[in-house]
Design a protein around this nucleic acid. Structure first.
Lengths: 91, 91
DNA sequence: AGTGTTTACGGCGACCGTAAATATG
DNA sequence: CATATTTACGGTCGCCGTAAACACT
């Protein structure tokens, strides 16, 4: 089966990558750290790859994480575009 | 909040668009018609737009549906690429 | 009538929050 | 010791399948 990627997980991933802290990323996403931790762990488990190196106070992307970040950014932008595109149509 | 798009829904949408039948699309996706119907309805409801015109035996894309199809194809390809990309890395 | 889609209903799994445990500086 | 992340646990929501209702030809 194909990997199930969704906008929420990708957004959690991208936000954490940008901010570098579960706590602050969670705050920005209006979630708890726990939820963000779950989401990232799920991604890592399904991919079988470590996406972040945990370094005490900071987390930093691994090389796999950097690769995914490029892709995730594109996917999220495409989703935004799609949404904006369709929003112009009246129901 | 942002629209929650995931690979399963998009795949259901794209498959239905290509095949033009809930029953056959479901068969290809290894799901029931009911599941595909649910997925499409959820998309249509969240967007507030009709994506397909139901015409008895056949379903055809509306213009909104055609717009989404282009986007959905891109997003799915991006997801495939991301997956393929990461698959080359050994754990 | 027969094929196809929608809808009602129930079960199962996924996701999130609270809170306890663990780690790091 | 204080701050941060992980994990255990429970509740809730969403997705899927079965089956009944409905639509079209």
């Amino acid at each position: 089966m194909t990997l199930i990627l969704d906008s929420r997980r990708l957004l959690a991933f991208v936000t954490l990558a940008r901010i570098g802290s579960f706590t602050l990323a969670a705050k920005e996403l209006h979630l708890t750290q726990s939820a963000v931790s779950h989401a990232i762990k799920a991604l890592e488990d399904e991919l079988g790859l470590r996406l972040f190196e945990r370094r005490g106070r900071h987390v930093a992307l691994t090389s796999a994480g950097r690769q995914l970040l490029v892709r995730a950014d594109r996917i999220l932008t495409e989703m935004q575009d799609a949404r904006a595109d369709l929003a112009t149509l009246s129901p």
